[in-house]
């Protein structure tokens, strides 16, 4: 296990693994996401109460789900950065923070579009919406801090501490709908119970979530590879790689 962990810290090894993984992640991700979204938007039954407007759930839930799990992954990478000083972990945080920010924005945006016809308002300062907005600002903070410090080592440490401090927001987002009175409804997917919606609604939703996970994996590999090439541009294997055109 430790051997695998240390191998994971090698940029060259990671670059090779990522190259092999990426086509699978991309093809699988597009297939699952397309299946889930098309099924959900065009074929799933409409809701007895909201009619067709509930269908935005097939976009809203996957983006909100990923926005939070990306932050958790960043927090794990931040611990690795602080304890083991692994450069790839820091590179992961830098590479995926913009992806997380975009997905958080999409979750807030689709939520507003959904809220107007159902609740009657675009925005309300309830605990769920506010903590999600804080998550967006945390992502902005991480991106800004990562770009602000020139020295690689101190930048990595500062970013990791910020990510770790921000991770307390994640349980607040998750449990906001249970701890406080909110306008937002409780979670659609719970870890311990079966979803309360019928299978022809939750299966496409699950497919869309899994598909977006795979596409995120592809995007993370791509962005980390680019980061590795920039950081390791003086090493022999990168110069070799560039000379041979990646073959």
């Amino acid at each position: 296990m430790w051997q695998f962990f240390h191998k994971l810290g090698s940029p060259k090894w990671f670059y090779g693994i990522a190259t092999r993984l990426m086509p699978w992640l991309l093809v699988g991700g597009i297939a699952l996401l397309l299946a889930g979204v098309v099924w959900g938007l065009a074929f799933a039954p409409k809701d007895y109460l909201q009619g067709n407007s509930y269908r935005i759930i097939f976009i809203h839930v996957p983006t909100a789900f990923l926005a939070q799990s990306i932050y958790i992954m960043m927090a794990v990478a931040a611990v690795v950065t602080l304890v083991w000083r692994m450069k790839l972990a820091d590179l992961f945080v830098r590479s995926v923070a913009p992806v997380g920010a975009v997905l958080t924005f999409l979750a807030l945006f689709t939520g507003a579009v959904w809220g107007k016809p159902t609740w009657g308002t675009w925005w309300i300062w309830d605990a769920r919406l506010t903590s999600m907005l804080i998550l967006l600002f945390l992502y902005f903070g991480v991106i800004a801090l990562a770009a602000a410090i020139a020295d690689e080592k101190s930048s990595a440490r500062a970013v990791a501490v910020l990510v770790l401090v921000g991770v307390v927001n994640i349980p607040i987002i998750k449990y906001s709908v249970e701890w406080w009175n909110t306008l937002h409804q409780p979670a659609t997917f719970k870890l311990t119970e079966r979803p309360t919606m019928p299978a022809e609604m939750w299966v496409p939703l699950l497919l869309a979530v899994l598909g977006l996970y795979l596409i995120f994996g592809w995007l993370a590999c791509l962005r980390m590879q680019t980061g590795i090439l920039v950081r390791e541009k003086r090493t022999r294997w990168v110069q070799e790689l560039v000379r041979t055109g990646g073959h």
């Binding site: 039954p45 809701d47 609740w119 409804q185 919606m197 019928p198 609604m201």
Partner: peptide, 17 residues
């Protein structure tokens, strides 16, 4: 101002009927 709140129990109209 009155806002509507809905729950997480989505279901097709036939099931609700």
């Amino acid at each position: 101002q009155v806002l509507a709140k809905h729950d997480e129990n989505y279901m097709p109209p036939e099931v609700s009927d």
